[in-house]
Amino acid sequence: MYYGIGKYVSENSREGFWGKAAIETISRQLQAELPGLRGFSAANIKFMRQFYEIWSVDLKSLTAVSEISDTQSLTAVSEIDILQLVESDNAIEERFDLSMFVSLGFTHHMIIVRKVGPLTERLFYIHQAVINKWSKEILTARIDDDLYNHRGELAHNFIQTIPDNRQTLKTIGMFKDEYLLDFINVEELGERDKEDIDERVIEQEIVHNVKKFIMTFGRDFAFVGNQYKLEVFGVEHFPDLIFFNRELNALVIIELKKGAFKPSYLGQLCTYLRLADDQMRKPHENPSIGIVLCKSADKKYVEYVIQDYDKPMGVATYKTSDEMPEKLKRVLPGVEDLKKLL
């Protein structure tokens, strides 16, 4: 309906005989004739026009593409194809699903159209918003985080270590190269120097805010435990965080590091993955996946040193709320001011 109204308004206001005040007049008349009618303010009607004008040509081409792609099979995918699918915008366009498009609420569409330009990015956020059931606040945050340009950029060895190509694609698409853990405010963790904030402090903040962490990290994650004891030959090991991902059907072990990436972290994580596969993994589950989450990492260096490990691992970085740009810090009220307002 909104698309149709947008088309009608566009055709008459852009090329027709309507004057500048026509939309405001129509809005007032609708609200006068239909008391209580919502969603037809002048601003919303103008957005319906914008919605139509942005999507009209694209929808025609996308529905044609989707009909062709439905007849194609992706059962045989090579390693080169996987890289192309992850990096190619055409892959997103070919996955277009009209039912998914129309199932997304119009408010969500408004956010995407206002904040996102290129077609492939719009399709990406529509797909993610639907499958992850994002609220409008989460959608806005993910767009502001520039999730689209962080997809598939995680430094990893998944292609070499996961034999099933479909599983490889799913795994690559599940993780980002950088995460904003904005619920962790290092400045509020005590009167200590920031250098003294160790991994355990950050880990506890994640555990206390595990719901927010899962929503940040991705979809279909279930929390298993932290500092989970794994023992072999009398030696005890304690992985920082363990999750289970339903879509990947695999345990995900996250090792937190407060500083820059070091190659030794991969050896430690590889040991945890072997123990988890031996002691925790169920017969029907896929091999466990490991993620090193550190403050900084050189992607090319990580890709160089990670290639000889036989366990699926990746390295991502994170930021906390204290790293907000100074320009934003000056504009936003402080924590105490916010508490008073609330």
Rank of each mutant, 00 (worst) to 15 (best):
G4P: 01
G4M: 03
G4Y: 10
G4N: 13
G4S: 11
G4C: 05
I5H: 01
I5Q: 04
I5E: 03
I5Y: 10
I5P: 01
I5L: 08
G6E: 09
G6M: 02
G6D: 09
G6V: 00
G6A: 02
K7A: 10
K7Y: 11
Y8W: 12
Y8G: 07
V9A: 08
V9E: 10
V9R: 07
V9T: 07
S10Q: 02
S10H: 11
S10I: 06
S10M: 02
E11D: 12
E11G: 15
E11L: 13
N12I: 07
N12K: 15
N12T: 10
N12L: 09
N12E: 13
S13K: 13
S13A: 11
S13R: 14
E15P: 08
E15H: 15
G16Y: 13
G16M: 12
F17I: 14
F17V: 14
F17C: 14
F17T: 15
W18T: 12
W18H: 10
G19H: 05
A21K: 15
A21D: 15
A21T: 14
A21W: 12
A21S: 15
A22V: 11
I23N: 02
I23P: 02
I23M: 03
I23G: 04
I23Y: 03
E24A: 15
T25G: 10
T25N: 14
T25Y: 13
T25E: 11
T25W: 11
I26W: 07
S27F: 01
S27H: 06
S27Y: 05
S27L: 05
R28E: 09
R28L: 11
Q29D: 15
Q29G: 04
Q29Y: 08
Q29E: 14
L30C: 06
L30N: 05
L30S: 01
L30P: 04
L30W: 03
L30R: 04
L30K: 07
Q31C: 03
Q31W: 01
A32M: 05
A32W: 07
A32V: 09
E33I: 06
L34M: 04
L34G: 01
L34I: 08
P35C: 11
G36T: 13
L37V: 10
R38H: 07
G39R: 09
G39Q: 12
G39H: 07
G39D: 12
G39A: 12
F40Y: 11
F40Q: 04
A42P: 15
N44I: 01
N44F: 00
I45R: 06
K46Y: 08
K46F: 01
K46M: 04
F47V: 02
F47K: 06
M48T: 01
R49F: 00
R49P: 02
R49T: 12
Q50H: 03
F51R: 00
Y52P: 05
Y52C: 06
Y52I: 03
Y52M: 06
E53G: 05
E53P: 09
E53A: 06
E53N: 13
I54Y: 05
W55H: 09
W55E: 06
S56K: 02
V57I: 05
D58C: 01
L59W: 00
L59C: 04
L59Q: 04
K60L: 03
K60W: 00
K60D: 05
S61I: 00
S61G: 00
L62F: 02
L62D: 09
T63W: 00
T63E: 13
V65W: 01
V65I: 10
V65D: 08
S66V: 08
S66H: 06
S66L: 06
E67C: 10
E67T: 08
I68N: 11
S69C: 10
